[in-house]
Design a protein around this nucleic acid. Structure first.
Lengths: 197, 197
DNA sequence: GTCTATAATTCGATAGAC
DNA sequence: GTCTATCGAATTATAGAC
């Protein structure tokens, strides 16, 4: 959950004087974006949460879109599914996503913003294509149907996050981690590895 | 998809002179709320779509929230599940929801707004409790687990709508109605009627 | 680096003429 | 019923003093 993952190719990021301040801004931004969505999460409110002047946010990130991009550029890398037994991919996938969702507010912010903001939706599509799609290609029996299978898994996983973390349906929020895994893992397993229905 | 379903108990609605105008406003509002969410869907833009003066919207619906309430007060009544064979509830449920989603933009508007707006989320919870929960109580083997089972179904159905109609993941949007039914019906069937996992 | 002041928009809502 | 004009508030973003 670093503010920017250093890419090996580009020159090393120059150490800044106020990394603590910048990290505080990003944390506040994630919380506000996750709680209020893109439009209602104002720079003023984020700055107030971070106990800093609003103009500093602009100085650091240039614009509201730049701030959002920085706040949601998290590392969502998938576990290595080549080493997972084929009959356990559903369970591993559920566990991985629960870890991500319950960690920070990054995914909640992404989901909430992806629904109101065009750039956010594009980001979600990119994450789907880069993260979930390869997993489906890896484990499903018919590679040409991998996109459909991955889309079904995305629907189930994002739907759970939607009802649990965003809409906060009481019965969905009340589910334990074990219950979620027990119910959803077989579903994902079927979407990924079952013969076409 | 009438603008207001006449309730038998209350006195009959007085026929208004400009019902066509009002219907046009509501149609435009649904489209805008569905496309842009609550904050970005401005009264000015809705009025422009409906080819009417913005002040008329205020005059008719009092406020932006009143307009949203009127635009999303659709009849989402469930089919009678007491007459559906228990082994077909999953299939019937999927078909019913696909009908609703592909009909007008009501549900898309509700979903999009439910994610950014507090009142919208409350509306979604109410619809869940009044529509899906009774179905689960009707068909599931352990009534005390009905809320959890209904929540799982809501997650799967709303997740499909999210990826297909809102985020527009290409593979999700490309699924045919038959494919969706074939994949999702067994999932819902299991969530509703299977023994606890 | 930090802050004040303010520009430039945009929005919901209102008042009132016709 | 319909429209013009406008208020008051909130926002992003900028300019510039210290």
């Amino acid at each position: 959950m670093t503010e920017r993952a250093p890419t090996p190719a580009e020159p090393e990021a120059p150490p800044r004087r106020s990394d603590a301040t910048r990290a505080g801004i990003l944390a506040a931004a994630r919380e506000r974006f996750a709680a209020d969505g893109y439009e209602r999460a104002t720079i003023r409110a984020i700055a107030k949460d971070a106990e800093i002047d609003p103009s500093m946010v602009m100085r650091y990130y240039g614009s509201k879109e730049g701030l959002f991009a920085a706040a949601t550029s998290a590392d969502l890398r998938m576990p290595d599914f080549t080493r997972v037994p084929r009959e356990e991919v559903g369970q591993v996938l559920v566990g991985h996503f629960l870890d991500l969702w319950e960690d920070a507010g990054v995914l909640t912010a992404l989901l909430r913003v992806g629904i109101t903001n065009q750039a956010g939706a594009e980001r979600m599509r990119k994450i789907f294509a880069e993260q979930l799609l390869p997993v489906a290609r890896e484990v499903c029996p018919d590679p040409d149907a991998a996109p459909a299978r991955a889309a079904l898994c995305a629907a189930q996983l994002l739907g759970l996050a939607l009802t649990r973390y965003v809409l906060r349906f009481p019965p969905s929020a009340a589910l334990t981690r074990e219950e979620i895994t027990a119910w959803l893992a077989p579903t994902l397993q079927r979407y990924l590895t079952a013969e076409r229905p």
